[in-house]
Amino acid sequence: MWITLLVMAVAVSLEPFRVGMTVLMINRPRPARQLLAFLTGGFAMGIAVGLVALFLLRPALGGSDSTLPVVQIVVGAVLLVNAALVVAGVWSRGLDAANLTESRFGPLTARARRVLEGRSLWTATVAGLGIALPSVDYLAALALIAASGAATTVQLGALLVFNVVAFALVEIPLLCYLVAPHRTRAALSALYDWLRAQGRRGVGALLAVAGGVLLAVGLAGLG
């Protein structure tokens, strides 16, 4: 479970939209506080959703030996489909939110941009809450944890580790900014530009690896 879970968490952390929001936060007034508020909102949402899902899924899945391979196969298939959609660009995970809204909503975009570029810490917190709303990847990770049959403390630990890794590209820039703000801002912007240009294939590959491993392990467990 752990290796697959970590691969899935890394794939989530490299989503260009997530990195783009981090770039936005680090370019707002009082960047360290903005990043901390953004991280707090995202982490709170991720943990809260995870706790609810795990306690609802555990009774349904039961964590039995016969159930776990089925869940692994289903989650693996979902991740493979997700990887194909990401690589094909059907799910444009790297879209710039500002560009998307500007093409559709006109004057409303300017107002939204002013809010995002302002100094309010509440805006950063709400943005963090929004970025951590459950995605297909996160729900698949929660299903994997719930079906593992591990003790409650182990499942809670897995949930915590997943979120720590998934928000690594918020946590690391926050720490680095305190030491070298200009270098951190430049490096993060360069990473975002690279992910927008090339990251779709990388994220898709990570998801495909995780999905393939889960599918193989699940099929082997049925035998």
Rank of each mutant, 00 (worst) to 15 (best):
T123F: 00
V126Q: 08
L121Q: 04
T101L: 15
L85V: 13
R93G: 03
T109G: 07
G118V: 09
S120H: 07
V126H: 07
A97P: 11
L108R: 14
L116I: 01
V90P: 04
S103Q: 14
W91R: 08
L100I: 04
L95H: 11
W122M: 08
E117C: 01
T123V: 14
N99F: 08
A112K: 08
T125I: 00
R114D: 15
V115E: 06
A98D: 15
V81R: 07
L100Q: 09
W91F: 13
W122K: 06
R113N: 14
L85K: 04
G106E: 13
A83C: 10
A98P: 05
R114A: 11
A83T: 05
R114F: 02
S103Y: 06
W91K: 08
L85N: 06
N99T: 07
E117K: 14
L116R: 15
A88Y: 03
T125L: 06
G106N: 13
T109C: 08
A97Q: 12
R93F: 06
T123Q: 07
T123G: 04
V87G: 05
N99A: 13
R113K: 15
R111H: 10
L100F: 12
A127S: 10
T125P: 00
A124P: 06
R93C: 02
L116T: 11
R113I: 00
V90N: 01
L116S: 15
R111S: 12
R104G: 03
A112L: 11
L121R: 02
R114I: 03
A112G: 12
G106Q: 13
N82Q: 12
A97T: 09
G128E: 00
E102V: 02
T125Q: 00
L129H: 03
T125D: 00
A124Q: 01
